[in-house]
Nucleic acid binder design. Sequence first.
DNA 1: ATCCCGAGGG
DNA 2: CCCTCTGGAT
Length: 215
Amino acid sequence: MLPDLSERKAQARRVVRQLKKDYADAECALNFDSPYQLLIATILSAQCTDVRVNIVTKDLFAQYPDAEAMAKAKVPKLEKIIQTTGFFRNKAKNIHAASQALVDQYDGEVPQELDKLVALPGVGRKTANVVLGTAFGIPSGVVVDTHVGRLTRRLGLTDKADAVKVEKELMEAVPKKEWIDFSHRLIHHGRAICAARKPKCDKCHFLKFCPQVGV
DNA sequence: ATCCCGAGGG
DNA sequence: CCCTCTGGAT
């Protein structure tokens, strides 16, 4: 049973305060040097570690640094480069088509509106929110990936499984000015401490308000 | 065997 | 809501 909104807001304040203490300088772990490159790196990050994405994008961006170059690439060549990130056929097709759409519709630039980003092939809310927040500093939503979903459920900020529903509840409970850092820091905490399989509760600073304690 | 900074389609 | 797409890491 999910606590009411005022209690979730109070819990969110505790979480935000501890995240700031533990992960003050947390930032995006993906390597990029333009909004376009962040967009592509984020598409590649589905079901893949950021470490591996960075290995692949080093090669990929050396050959295809922007939307114009990527739109001219041959899809089988892209498949080969990104092969080890998984889902490589879908990702290669989507990266190529999204790059072509950027060239056709936005002169090769990345739009700064959620609905325009989500309309691109292979771009959902999670990817769009990463690009808007991290590349443009626009808090258009809360990034909900596998880490954010898992941790906010464990911490009692949501009881939903669906990422869109989780995002909606987090947008209610977490102040808008915290949205961007909130997700980044939760992701860091999810990787370092609150892992899916063997969470290191003995090293966790969130225990004093974690509903999982004793469960 | 299970999870990793998901998206699209049924 | 479910399923599929995929290789790598643990």
